[in-house]
Design a protein around this nucleic acid. Sequence first.
DNA 1: CCAGACGTTGTT
DNA 2: GTCTGG
DNA 3: CCAGACGTTGTT
DNA 4: GTCTGG
Length: 256
Amino acid sequence: MCGRFAVTTDPALLAEKIKALDEATQTSTGAKSGPNFNVAPTQTITTVVKRHSEPDDQSTRRVRSMRWGLIPPWAKTAEDGSPDNKGPLLINARAEKVTDSPAFRNSAKSKRCLVPMDGWYEWRPNGEPGKKTPKTPFYMYGDDGELLFMAGLWSTWRPKGAPKDSPPLVSCTIITTDAAGPLAEIHDRMPLTISAPDWDRWLDPDAPVDEGLLRGHGDLDRIAIREVSTLVNNIRNNGPELIEPAEPQPEQGVLL
DNA sequence: CCAGACGTTGTT
DNA sequence: GTCTGG
DNA sequence: CCAGACGTTGTT
DNA sequence: GTCTGG
């Protein structure tokens, strides 16, 4: 799956790199600047969308800030005016379900996004299932040192009674699929990557979701894996040491 | 018709 | 154990 | 995803 | 919002 990741490219540079308008730095709630080696759920993250300036214009790529953890438009409003989040945080959405599930299907139609990152972390369970052996973290990244772009969905939410033109809370989720290749040794799910030639097709707000991309594995062949230290476990830790290779820890039980 | 749910992963 | 916070 | 918190009533 | 259950 994908529950923690690393980003070292700031939004302005990203926008330049992928020829997008930078709409991330203009808002007060933008992602914190500088490299972040420990991006966690509920934080503000940088995404890429395609939108129109005018209804009849061609859509253009835009870099935007969003809260990680999708809040459906129909989420209720709590007493303090925040969304009433019962149930789990929607940081991931299963590719197999996004077109049908009530929480995601509207976003799947016209609110698809990409979540750029240097790499992400997976924790491999060790020992017999059911026993509480510490998990081992791994870092998955592009073997060419370039960014990976994860398929995502986004949504807007306003408190009950708020004007239609008031600024909404914009949130997003990362789509997951079956793990394949070497990644399957670590975990049974992985984020859905989209390779550069497919970005525009994935993002097109005027076309239905592309089933081929949704069922594919995008940039799977670019992904490298290395074991890292448990420093990443605690989100207070944040530095380049989080992605440095660690001494392999034995995987117990399964191999016996 | 209205009321109520709507979601992930992992573990069992 | 289960929920919240980051 | 993992880490960390998790609490009442009454009195000051 | 939109679908399901009653």
